[in-house]
Design a protein around this nucleic acid. Structure first.
Lengths: 123, 123
DNA sequence: ATTATTGTATTAGGTGCTTAATACAATAAT
DNA sequence: ATTATTGTATTAAGCACCTAATACAATAAT
């Protein structure tokens, strides 16, 4: 999963979401060290300041912590990660259902559209 | 459906989406006149320039057209509206499924979460 | 001890978005 | 004819975001 940054939203916000996602998906496992600010910034082709801003927010939330010179690490609190994952999933579903409802789709229609598109996407 | 504007994305982009949504949902019916730029701006509590920007984009797309002094109207092309609605729905589903997949959810799990939350949301 | 790497902080400049304040042009309403 | 309303355009200011260029502090590595 590469860094997918669009221009229609603040980059730092997108970085927060994508790093959060990597933690929840286990790409950055609990307790593991993540790359340095500068390395991550280069990976994502953004300014180190922008990456630092995103990391500081995740640290504030408790998903990351830093050791002054040895680097930054994912929390060992797997329960917090699990809750975060569930919270994100619930938000996704709610936003999705609201938009579909606003577009005038019924519950049954939504399920059939999903099943149509899910095959090509969920492998 | 009031104007729900968040601060994490450009306002004009959100206005485009919400007006598009109103057209697709039939709140602004085909051929009908929509409120003036100034009135819409006041409704949404935004600057007239910002509203104008959104309307200009929808006009460029063909969903709206304007008569110099009598106002702005929704296209009579119901086929275009139908296609737009389907395009938006497909996009929503794809974005949703991708995010859920990235979070590590299987197809079956997604369906069960939806059915859990759908009751309280869909009517 | 010295060096390199880490997180962190500061300053300056550029860009896009939004608002505010006008103004103009066209035409519907009176 | 005059007035009011419509879409449209212009200019200036403020703000948030992003980048660039540094610099500092702490400590792991040598």
């Amino acid at each position: 999963m590469g860094w997918e940054l669009k221009t229609d939203r603040p980059i730092y916000a997108q970085l927060i979401e994508q790093i959060e996602l990597r933690i929840c998906a286990g790409i950055y496992p609990p307790g593991s060290r993540i790359p340095s600010v500068r390395d991550l910034a280069q990976e994502a082709s953004v300014n180190p300041n922008t990456m630092q801003r995103a990391l500081a927010k995740l640290e504030e939330d408790g998903l990351l912590y830093s050791h002054r010179t040895s680097g930054r690490f994912v929390t060992e609190d797997t329960e917090m990660i699990r809750k975060t994952r569930n919270k994100l999933a619930k938000e996704q579903v709610q936003v999705f259902l609201k938009k579909m409802k606003d577009l005038g789709f019924e519950y049954g229609e939504i399920l059939s559209i999903i099943s149509d598109l899910a095959e090509e996407m969920m492998e």
